[in-house]
Design a protein around this nucleic acid. Structure first.
Lengths: 217, 217
DNA sequence: CTAAAAATTTAGGCTGGCCTAAATTTTTAT
DNA sequence: ATAAAAATTTAGGCCAGCCTAAATTTTTAG
């Protein structure tokens, strides 16, 4: 049985690893967990002793199979609770992260099973992220970034890569909603910003910074 | 802001205080929190420093107004989550205590407000305990114990005073359900056990130990 | 290729919440 | 009234998870 803190490290290692290739660095973990590198090193020794990570000094870190299984279990819980908070309690997608961060640690297999059923076995959380299966598989979505689309293309907004309140509220203001079909009408050659058309009437300016964090298909 | 552990002490002090008059003892707290008396003393000093309890050495402990407000807030959360687990997720009333024990510590005012609305502003939890109001009032129910009823009386089962899985499962087996009207048909003079009639056909034996933990009106 | 910079680990220390053993206070029984 | 028993507190210590400062290793720049 892992502590709250150990679970957070596993989840964070998974999330960082999925954004790059190779090992995850101590510093990156320190930044994500809002602690210092020395504290991370302590915890890595502990997780390595429990065989939840592969760890060689100075060489970064990688989850073991068991570590990945646990990480995916925690991410599954997190995403299911986010669905609950948005769909059942009516929170905005920009409000639920911190609460889900706490709810994900509630220790009960049965609770997750029943929550999943109650929610109708959702496939995606409110940010478009796929919900890992009960057996610990992360569905591969094969989305592209909006910033990689070509002018003239019509694409569907599928997910966000950035979960901060500020980013999500910015999308709210721009009427950029998951599930919308948008047409890329113009790509600025200088700053790579994008003009997209939503429906027939509305044209929205999307900066490169934003477009890089929007996944489409 | 209180720690998880501090919240548990406040809740436990409230619960013990409501079952007796006067101050709550260190030993009683040690038993309820499954720790040792010395550890309780440590925590009492801390809570007294924060002015959440009135505490004089060797004299037992009592909540301050602020302490009681916090305790009732935690109890409110606990009972709302129990309603959620039973009514929305379909858990049995004998299965939800430990999960609610964790859920009650999730830190979000807004979450409690929305959960309450989602559940339709319930007045009682699945064990018949009243849910404290948002402003921190504990509704007074004025129930009696079944063990205090007289032969011939018809009473309604309202709540249980013991929340252990074993006790609740025993009630399940005996078809003693909250809301049922039962008639006390006989009180054994020797062991104070009770025979109650449920509906027209069924007669159930209720030991004094059980009758003492059933509240009726 | 090497020296400086960056990243990481080690050493030693802190706090919260727990423990045991010993000391102290209160209660109970004679 | 007082001695024994029970309850409580104090003293000192442990572990998890964090910290800073110093030491070490790796990476990078010239």
């Amino acid at each position: 049985m892992q502590s709250f803190t150990e679970e957070n490290y596993l989840k964070t290692i998974y999330n960082l690893a999925s954004k790059q290739q190779g090992e995850v660095s101590t510093n990156a973990l320190a930044e994500m967990t809002a602690t210092k590198a020395a504290s991370v090193t302590d915890m890595l020794r502990k997780l390595a002793d429990k065989e939840l990570i592969h760890y060689k000094k100075y060489q970064g870190v990688r989850l073991t199979e068991e570590g990945e299984r646990l990480a995916l279990q925690i991410i599954r819980r997190h995403r299911l609770w986010e669905v609950f908070l948005v769909q059942k309690l009516g929170f905005g997608w920009d409000e639920v992260h911190d609460m889900a961060e706490e709810l994900e640690h509630i220790r009960s297999e049965e609770l997750v099973v029943r929550l999943d059923t109650f929610l109708g076995h959702p496939q995606f959380d409110p940010h478009g992220d796929p919900i890992p299966t009960p057996t610990g598989q992360m569905p591969e979505m094969g989305y592209r970034k909006l910033s990689d689309a070509e002018a003239g293309e019509a694409v569907c907004l599928r997910a966000v890569m950035e979960h901060s309140t500020e980013f999500l509220q910015h999308l709210n203001h721009s009427s950029l909603t998951l599930g919308s079909i948008v047409t890329v009408s113009e790509i600025n050659a200088f700053d790579k910003s994008v003009l997209v058309q939503i429906g027939n009437d509305r044209t929205v300016f999307v900066s490169y910074e934003v477009a890089k964090n929007l996944l489409v298909s």
